[in-house]
């Protein structure tokens, strides 16, 4: 029938939903680019864009330290989790050993256990060790949970990689570690990169762990600094809060824009852990 008409309606619908999806985020960006808020209302398009708010946000309330901490934490968690997941995915994906299935199902259970329900003992654990407000307190629990998603992800990659290649390499006398490092790893890099982006996102965006592990306020992360910021500044300068919000969103959005499809697919495949 009138497929041109159908097509126009389709695009109109998709455009409408896309606008709704990005509106709140674009409004924050515009607000951040505006000059000192003369009581901002509704939706403002900055006529005279300025980066002043970003400078203020960066230097205020320890935001720069929070941002630096977040980079250290998220990067370390990502590297550790991906490394451990490559190893475990390789083990579970290409070898058989007693207990392999039980271990796999245990790790899969970790995908659906809500992180919230671990938070009280996790806090006690680090408090008893005198280690709250440390990098370790923010990094180790994240690694512990991320390896579930990571193992699942890397295992399904290694399972689907060609057995013939592995066998050929072994025929040539390559040990299991050699097979992993020089035969499989090169082709595993794209999968590992997707996993890295997801783990980075979950860790960077985390709020609860940072909140709980930071009773004294000395170990801010970027989202936590932003949260305090917004609370303290609720009635004052919104452009500065908006600028800080843009800075918090930026690293993940950048990774997302670069990886797009892979990012979405990874998210939906390993989905169950939010």
């Amino acid at each position: 029938m009138s497929s041109r008409w159908e097509r126009a309606v389709t695009h109109a619908l998709l455009i409408t939903f896309s606008v709704i999806a990005v509106y709140p985020l674009v409004s924050i960006l515009f607000l951040a680019l505006s000059r000192q808020s003369d009581l901002v209302t509704g939706f403002t398009i900055p006529t005279d864009p300025s980066l002043d708010s970003f400078v203020t946000a960066w230097t205020k309330g320890g935001f720069d330290r929070g941002f630096a901490n977040s980079i250290v934490v998220a990067t370390t968690v990502t590297i550790l989790s991906v490394a451990l997941s490559i190893l475990s995915g390789y083990g579970l994906g290409t070898m058989r050993f007693p207990g392999a299935n039980a271990i796999f199902y245990l790790l899969m259970a970790g995908l659906v256990i809500p992180y919230e329900s671990l938070i009280i003992p996790l806090y006690r654990l680090f408090r008893d060790a005198g280690m709250t407000e440390s990098y370790a307190a923010l990094i180790l629990p994240q690694v512990g949970v991320s390896v579930c998603l990571g193992t699942f992800w890397m295992r399904s990659f290694f399972r689907s990689s060609p057995r013939a290649v592995i066998e050929a390499a072994r025929m040539d006398g390559a040990g299991h570690l050699r097979v992993l490092l020089s035969v499989l790893l090169p082709s595993a890099l794209p999968a590992a990169l997707t996993l890295a982006a997801l783990v980075f996102m979950y860790t960077w965006n985390d709020y609860l762990l940072a909140l709980v592990m930071n009773p004294g306020g000395d170990m801010l992360t970027a989202p936590l600094a932003l949260g305090y910021f917004a609370g303290a500044q609720r009635y004052s300068d919104q452009t500065v809060v908006a600028a800080a919000a843009v800075l918090v969103a930026l690293p993940v959005v950048a990774a997302y824009v670069v990886l797009q499809r892979r990012f979405i697919r990874g998210f939906l495949t390993g989905a169950v852990r939010e």
Binding site: L84, L92, M95, R96, L107
Partner: peptide, 20 residues
Amino acid sequence: PPGEPRLVGFLYVLPALAAF
């Protein structure tokens, strides 16, 4: 079923398992 029987597989899984 994945691969041949190899106990060394457990060693590969161990670090992630320990963390979890």
